[in-house]
Design a binder for these strands. Structure first.
Lengths: 338, 338
DNA sequence: ATTCTGAAATGAATCGATTCAATCATGACT
DNA sequence: AGTCATGATTGAATCGATTCATTTCAGAAT
């Protein structure tokens, strides 16, 4: 199977390789007759552009890399979709990388994207991956942080105020009469987790007689949530919290599964439950789940927007930090006790 | 920002470009001293391999393309994860493309992957995208169909017996005493949908007095399911089915949302409901959802396995069709009426 | 008839990593 | 001392699309 390059096409059409390239990229610069002759040759030979060669010449690829914490989390697939749509408008493709909340995989994807000379990187970083990210952009790859506020003003970022979101969630639980709150989430290397916890702590501090227990998890998955739920059931009733704020909806749904299937700890009567992200499945849960909604698709598209701005900006580019406000969505899982 | 290539590294380390390449790819062929000198130079200059140049020389990229019907569907993200894991073992990356159940996007991704000279393509095709796929593989890109049985023996494929799955679901509904079934799903251009419907029809035909109504949808999403649920609520009670088999869990959860939130049609008392895929959220639903389970991650990893076999196979390669059997998972949503 | 203009087409040079035949160096062995 | 084998290193050629300075040519203007 001989591989067909512009050279073969040029020979077949009786023109030079430069002309073939022009037909491909600026057909208006080529006379109509030539265009159709070249196109016929392309059709006949089944020529397919070699993207590697294009990229090599161009210096940059036509895709942008997106590293998320968990592709299994609908919040991130929604975000990715928003990014994809915006990128498509600019003729770019999104490569989706899943760090799975581990530093090694995150780092591996960044290396991969840098080798691919991507147009830019969007990343929801684990911890303070600061050093690697700084190096990446210093070497010329535009980088935007998503779903993450940053003290480092040199990066553009699109985030949601997680401290505020945490405050919102905890305040809501307190207002519905709960006093012994528990925050379920982890690992603490994930900034979103610590921010949400911080917000919750602040809300608790504002009310006398309200306590907050922090229950650590090693990941933010349904499975992990189920384990926590089982652990709660195993406790003597008087040691149990009367409200749970889970760091995301997957955890919350896991906890809910455990409570409703294995035990008889009723939600919201005996224990209230609120999640975070407001994924599509939250409202269809055993007990429809209260949650903190984030504009996921908008975060993704805005991040691409900032990335393009940085890529085009040149010298006089100013990083921007955009922060959206989260929103409380109340459903049955945090209904007042009666 | 001068770009650093092997040439600069070679100059800095005082060796030839060939040696730098050897350090990168076969360090055992190079003396220890040279290796460390070159590595020091790489470190110092911040050299990053240009993947486009590698690929151009190699002729093939080191990633495989995966086109799925819907990234928002956990079934496909699970499948993708299985594929990723297996691919990683072989040193390959998976590029995830989302056809969103539209022929244009599917076709665009296939073109893109071909231009990228991917190692191979895994695709969950919409309809009989036959022509384009045949051309793709004829030109040398190994292609494996996933989640899809095919009459065309020239392709390798990994599938689950959807006809059997449909039969399983409908039989179960009938066995629990339901007689007026409805199948919710669409569009019919998606083969999985028609196969599941066919299986259900067969099961119904085996029992006298049982009817099956087909309710078409334009996509397989939660939103669409909710719309169908609302339409059902609007019907007079005597026109309603007493059991619903939804073509996938997203649809089923949508129907469930509508029924439980907007109306008072109780599941499973007045209407039974079963989905397909058994995604993680199914068991956490308002009414835990019965479903047909498919080994999603296994499908993904097996598909990569076949792909690699085809890529290495050369002339004497024989396509393989692997078919897994789905499994019925019974939960509350199809409990017997009492 | 001559010059000029603009459009169209040309093709060598380029991007950067890899490959492989050729060269070089070292030490072992006769 | 001379021959050989082994291992290390070299560097020109290659992959394929794009670019751009240059050439070609038809027609307009003088």
């Amino acid at each position: 199977m001989a591989t067909i390059s512009v050279r073969e096409v040029a020979a077949e059409a009786g023109v030079s390789v430069g002309t073939v390239s022009n037909v491909l990229n600026r057909p208006d610069k080529v006379s109509a007759g030539t265009v159709s002759r070249v196109q016929a040759a392309i059709e006949l030979l089944g020529f397919v552009r070699n993207d590697a060669a294009r990229q090599l010449r161009a210096g940059r690829s036509r895709s942008i890399g997106l590293v998320v914490l968990d592709v299994g989390n609908p919040f991130f697939t929604d975000l990715a979709r928003g990014a994809e749509d915006r990128a498509a408008q600019a003729g770019l493709t999104v490569l989706l990388g899943n760090s799975d909340e581990t530093a090694e995989r995150e780092s591996a994807y960044l290396d991969l994207f840098e080798e691919q000379r991507v147009h830019g990187v969007l990343i929801s970083p684990l911890g303070d991956s600061g050093e690697q990210l700084k190096r990446l952009r210093r070497r010329g790859t535009p980088t935007v942080l998503v779903d993450r506020q940053t003290e480092d003003r040199s990066f553009s970022s699109v985030a949601v105020d997680d401290v505020f979101g945490g405050h919102l969630a905890a305040s809501h639980l307190i207002e519905t009469g709960r006093t012994r709150l528990a925050f379920v989430g982890g690992p603490h290397s994930i900034r979103q987790v610590t921010d949400r916890l911080e917000g919750a702590r602040a809300a608790v501090a504002e009310h006398a007689g309200v306590t907050l227990e922090a229950i650590d998890t090693c990941s933010l998955s349904v499975l992990e949530g189920r384990a926590i739920g089982e652990a709660l059931l195993a406790r003597p009733a008087e040691d149990r919290p009367d409200a749970i704020f889970a760091a995301n909806d997957l955890l919350a749904l896991g906890v809910l599964q455990a409570l409703s299937m294995l035990g008889d700890l009723r939600v919201p009567q005996e224990i209230a439950l609120i999640g975070y992200d407001d994924i599509a499945f939250a409202s269809a849960a055993v007990v429809p789940l209260s949650s903190i909604r984030q504009p996921s698709a908008l975060i993704g598209s805005t991040a691409v927007e900032l990335l393009l701005r940085e890529a085009d900006g040149g010298e006089n580019f100013e990083p921007e930090q955009i922060v959206f406000q989260p929103e409380l969505v109340v459903r049955a899982s945090t209904a007042a006790r009666d």
